[in-house]
Design a protein around this nucleic acid. Structure first.
Lengths: 211, 211, 211, 211
DNA sequence: AATGAATGAGAGTTCATTCAT
DNA sequence: GATGAATGAACTCTCATTCAT
């Protein structure tokens, strides 16, 4: 028989659906202002069912974050390791890829949420720092150093440069989240334009021999 | 005798003390997790006293924000208008001043808090955008344009460049706030170093004729 | 088996039980002096449960009033319309019926409560006036007029006569409520005796040709 | 010196002014809904001053009631004792006097308040019953009996007749208080008309030989 | 497994009362 | 005496969590 009971299929998807509902609502209203019952309702189940899968609201938040933080750093690192050409191009390409695959999607939204809720979830913050931030910084920092050693870049501060690569995108996302609703503040540009302008500015500032 | 009874002096200072206690606690634990009684306790008064001065927890938050956002933008704008030399130097100087006068102090902390709580206080977010963000962007944007027209800067995207000036500092502040506690994450550099490296990178990327 | 699980039966009865508890307590102690938790406790449930059924103490009061004011006015009006004999007898009969069916029961208690709390619930007072007082006055007033036109009654003031029919019973109820507790004041007569004496006096005063 | 410091004069009047303010506000908003500060404010003094004269809100209420309940029963009783003519006329005259001197003034309003708050002030209720209600009933009851013995009245129930004399006026006052505000319910007649109609009806019902 | 009624700790807020000035 | 800032008990209402069905 080709027909699978839709009920059954749906039941297996419960945890997923709950996490999605949680993500949506936490982004919309913030963690504190979201009631567990709302999450359940949006996922199409009753309040009690939520607690069958996640033992507390906090745990739900954590699970949701972990679910969405499967960032592709290892992948990028591998790609970077075997890359041969100019670092500048690799950097630009990696930023574009990050935005397309991570920044724009759920993972990006979750990063925003994490910055906001980090104080309330130190354990999660640590996890995020260890699994996402530090590896990213190492990856990017390594590339900068490689560029400097190869004479492609000026002898700049590695940490500061990494920060200059990361901060503008994250800040734009947070700004959008915090002030973008209710017509409070429209950014004068879209993320892609910012990314290109950012890379142009930075590479210009970075290259020993700007084109 | 010039000494005033300490009781009296203290009474007049109540609102101030409450706002300071509120700032501290909201920064430490976030708005939702801070109980009104805690604010009162930290200010050394009883629960009810808080409500003599601020009619609700929300209003306390708003008052605290207003109190601390008497930012020095107008001052900076005037300074910028009469300045004659190279824009690059002015920009660097203004960033340093902003950090010293605003970023480091309570106003900086409040900016962080606002980014985090903006969704819960749309009215306040609007106020902040109108009074702080937009004027800052106009001020910096005007300088970039001036530099471009004068041939000092390359023909870059004004919006993106402004963002590149602002975002790194704010993001560092937020990062510090979110991950700096509990030994979660130590920044690899201090704010002053970052500021200098940032300006160096940006001006290098910006100047039509880098030194 | 016709037996339903007691739990289930009880669950369905919750709103009823809460309204009954509310009625009792509001009558005993007044609205302001009754704590929501007491109502819940008397109904045998916890504080929070009350709020599952009624969103606020005010709404609980309103619901309780509505629940108990399904008065038999329409019924009486219909009865009056088709009645043929002497109005005097109909009046006396209606008063007796009112006392038996309304005055003595919960509805009567609620009327008392309404007189006391009306200032705090203008909306409810309006409802009560529209649904109970005005129809009653119209009904009784119509009968008096009918009696006058038929030559059965003297040409008295209709409004005042209606008032003389209604006021003594309501006042006795209120008097009982206000002063009957704590051995403060024992009425010198019971309601039925008062009713008969009242009708005797009034009809004597009313009839053009007293027996 | 003929000039008395107005301050001094006013100070002596403090208790009076406070009681008046209390009466007004308790009538306007009810006891529970009136804040002590409001009473003080209306009397033109600060909150603390109120407590210098009356040790609690309850005591303030009691004092206000006692102040206004100096009803002229003894006076009426004396007048009744030496009266010689037909009881019917005396009754009517006494009711008119009561309305003019008591019902219409503060004492009347206070009776209404007492009925409403009696449950919360049993001690006061007892006082009221002993000092006002019982003497009034005795006075009126004595007259009815005198009328019956004299053959002027039919042999009616004394208690019920007294009730029929008192209840309509008190009920009208309460009705006015409870439903007269906010345009909820306008009585179809004024108190004087009611009084005359009431006396007419009652005396007609009472007199052995109606005119 | 799913439900949703029930729970009760906890938070914000009010206001009668006190007391230092 | 007068003031009004300060107090804290008391109260309403919310919502994460539990558990009988």
């Amino acid at each position: 028989m080709a027909t699978v009971a839709p009920r059954q299929r749906r039941k297996d998807a419960r945890p997923q659906e709950l996490l999605e509902a949680a993500l949506e609502l936490f982004v919309e209203k913030g963690f504190a202002a979201t009631r567990s019952e709302e999450v359940a309702a949006r996922a199409g189940v009753a309040k009690g069912t939520l607690y069958r899968y996640y033992p507390s609201k906090d745990e739900l938040f954590k699970a949701m974050v972990r679910e969405n933080l499967s960032v592709h750093i290892a992948e990028s690192a591998a790609q970077a390791a075997q890359y041969q050409g100019p670092i500048a191009e690799l950097l630009a390409e990696m930023m574009r890829t990050w935005w397309a695959k991570v920044g724009q999607g759920n993972a990006g939204v979750v990063c925003t949420l994490l910055m906001i809720e980090a104080r309330n979830f130190p354990e999660l913050a640590r996890f995020y720092v260890d699994e996402v931030i530090t590896p990213s910084q190492n990856l990017l920092g390594g590339l900068i150093e490689r560029g400097i050693r190869a004479g492609e870049f000026r002898a700049v501060s590695v940490e500061a440069t990494v920060h200059m690569l990361i901060a503008p995108m994250l800040h734009m996302m947070l700004h959008q989240h915090s002030f973008g609703e209710h017509d409070i503040c429209h950014p004068g540009m879209d993320a892609t334009d910012l990314l290109e302008a950012q890379m142009s500015l930075l590479l210009h500032g970075l290259l020993a021999d700007p084109v």
